[in-house]
Computed example of a mutant assay.
Amino acid sequence: MNRIVCMIFIILNFVQVSVAEQVKPTINSDVNVNKEQTLEEREGRVLEKTYTILMEEKVNVFVPLEIISDVDIEATLIGDQSLEIPFEIELNKQPEKKDYYSIKYSESAIDIDKDGKLDTYIYSPQYINERVIKDNYIKIYGDKISKEGQHKKSVYMEVEVGY
């Protein structure tokens, strides 16, 4: 766990004003007031003491669990063939808690050829307990793909926190 130490300097100005000085003098319109006078000089306030306080603060910095690997999968299907393609996901660090984090996909059941039938499925373990997750795979059913050609799909992954 990284710790950051912040130094904060605060200068506090304390002003002590007597009861006689708190009453504002009335300015007669006949009296010529010098415009160069400061507010303190006109109202009779004088800075008497200045204090400097040095404070130290310690902060815990939390680095979230992130996916640092990209997964590109290319597969060739012939006819009604079904494929099971394994893949790995790498995280930036080992999870601190067991059975707490999981992988969430933007889509886990996909219609790759856009014909209305789901033909591609993404499977992952329920929880993330290691830095490299190896039990992931994609299952493609060739008999449900009706359009020939090259099909592309982007699926986004994120780490989900359990409750």
Results as ranks from 00 to 15, higher is better:
95 P>H: 10
136 N>Q: 05
42 R>H: 04
145 I>F: 03
86 P>D: 13
142 G>V: 02
60 N>T: 14
74 E>D: 15
5 V>W: 07
70 D>C: 04
144 K>M: 02
28 N>F: 06
39 L>N: 06
84 E>V: 14
146 S>D: 10
26 T>V: 06
78 I>W: 12
29 S>L: 07
62 F>C: 02
156 Y>T: 06
160 E>Q: 12
129 N>Q: 05
116 G>D: 01
66 E>F: 11
96 E>D: 15
153 K>L: 02
99 D>F: 14
138 I>M: 14
64 P>R: 04
3 R>Q: 13
156 Y>H: 03
97 K>E: 15
84 E>Y: 08
77 L>E: 03
9 F>D: 10
92 N>C: 13
124 S>D: 09
31 V>D: 13
54 L>K: 12
3 R>G: 07
130 E>K: 14
23 V>T: 06
17 V>T: 14
74 E>L: 09
55 M>F: 13
144 K>D: 00
72 D>K: 14
67 I>N: 07
35 K>W: 04
43 E>G: 01
18 S>H: 07
24 K>W: 06
72 D>G: 09
63 V>N: 12
104 K>A: 13
68 I>Y: 10
102 S>H: 12
116 G>C: 10
157 M>R: 04
98 K>Q: 15
74 E>P: 00
10 I>T: 13
50 T>L: 08
90 E>G: 07
61 V>Y: 14
52 T>P: 02
3 R>P: 00
43 E>L: 14
84 E>R: 13
70 D>M: 09
87 F>E: 08
108 S>W: 08
61 V>G: 02
152 K>N: 15
142 G>M: 03
25 P>G: 07
51 Y>V: 15
41 E>M: 05
83 L>P: 00
154 S>Q: 07
157 M>V: 03
25 P>D: 04
110 I>Y: 00
134 K>M: 07
35 K>G: 10
102 S>K: 11
45 R>Y: 14
48 E>C: 03
32 N>R: 08
102 S>T: 09
121 Y>P: 00
136 N>M: 05
59 V>E: 10
95 P>N: 10
72 D>I: 15
110 I>W: 01
46 V>W: 03
125 P>R: 08
126 Q>H: 07
118 L>N: 05
48 E>L: 06
7 M>W: 03
68 I>A: 06
99 D>Q: 13
139 K>A: 09
58 K>T: 14
123 Y>N: 06
109 A>I: 09
63 V>S: 07
29 S>D: 09
133 I>Q: 04
15 V>T: 13
24 K>A: 12
117 K>V: 15
2 N>Y: 09
51 Y>W: 11
69 S>A: 11
31 V>K: 08
30 D>G: 05
3 R>I: 15
80 D>C: 09
18 S>K: 06
69 S>V: 09
124 S>E: 07
137 Y>P: 00
43 E>F: 15
115 D>E: 09
113 D>F: 04
153 K>Y: 05
85 I>T: 12
163 Y>F: 11
